[in-house]
Nucleic acid binder design. Structure first.
Lengths: 191, 191
DNA sequence: GTCTATAGACTGATAGAC
DNA sequence: GTCTATCAGTCTATAGAC
């Protein structure tokens, strides 16, 4: 595999497990099997690494959302898949999604990275709002309120659920925290 | 004021704004107006400082919950006050509550601190579960599902809402994320 | 592209005077 | 209790050989 990709993979794992500031080039070097000075060839500054991380992540998730749109017709189906995406990112309760991980330690991030992070967040919220708006039509979600409020609430819920589940090292906390939400989705559209 | 208290105040502010690992004894010393070596007299290890922080915080919040129980009779009133507590902790979108802040960087915390943090979280969940159970009787909250699920969901929601609101430096995101939740509370009991 | 070697800054923590 | 002085360890980042 490409060294750059190996570095991104290792850095993403570390950032999601322990935080972006909690791993060093020394950790990365050990993990990938090169010397730490060599990392600077691929990512001169650690800020470049952060940017590479969020850039790749945003592209990946954007693709996943398109996939969900293709595979699910109803709003309930899409929301179920969205929840599954965040649940899946938790692994066995050891990792946050990159977005939550970077948001948590945002004080040390460079402006371009913060910008990308904000943009990613807005994209997620906009997509969800659109899904909730569609839910008004297809009636696949019960108890609907304002689509924008619903979108912000669901995003906060999954991010918070990841946080508490990892804190307790217990994935089932994520499931309990999202249980009431899932019962609002029309049962035939859960997958 | 007591030096120890001044140190705890400064450390709490820093931890909630930037994370526990993102401030140093040097920062604290500058802020409080003593030399950094002197801090070690009050908190020999930084782990001792973390413990002092969470200990004081747990006691404070426990007292606040008792206050809420005294001042509000209905479940809806208590939940509204609970939401206000987390909203208030956000300040102007610059600070997380200490619980979220420490949870986010939990990898560097000592076992005793992790234990206290877990205990605090369980206490919060237990209190909420009790309130949601009471809501079944007084019917002040609409659309109730399982009390434990509701408790876990609300805790995840407020923690996630804090995270996204601070990330965007926009307190109103917290309000939007919790709007749908607030409409479930009987309107006469909002305060 | 990867290496050795090193710079320069900062970290938490300690010893010992006052 | 607070100070000065210092330690050993870490961090990101750079210079320059191969």
């Amino acid at each position: 595999m490409d060294t750059r990709t190996a570095l991104l993979d290792s850095a993403e794992r570390a950032a999601r497990q322990r935080g972006f500031d909690a791993f060093s080039y020394a950790d990365l070097a050990r993990d990938v099997g090169i010397r730490k000075a060599s990392i600077h060839y691929h990512f001169p500054l650690k800020a470049d690494l952060a940017f590479g991380l969020i850039e790749r992540y945003a592209a990946r998730i954007s693709e996943r959302r398109a996939e969900i749109d293709r595979e699910h017709q109803t709003a309930a189906g899409k929301l179920g898949a969205f929840l599954a995406l965040y649940r899946e990112a938790l692994a066995e309760g050891t990792q946050l999604c990159l977005c939550v991980a970077l948001s948590a330690g945002r004080d040390s991030l460079s402006p371009p990275v913060l910008e990308q992070l904000a943009e990613f967040h807005e994209d997620s919220a906009a997509w969800l709002e659109q899904v909730f708006t569609a839910a008004r039509e297809d009636r696949s979600v019960i108890g609907l309120s304002d689509p924008q409020d619903e979108a912000d609430a669901l995003l906060a819920l999954v991010e918070g659920a990841q946080l508490v589940a990892r804190a307790a090292k217990d994935v089932t906390l994520f499931d309990r925290a999202t249980a009431a939400c899932r019962t609002r989705l029309a049962p035939t559209q859960l997958n």
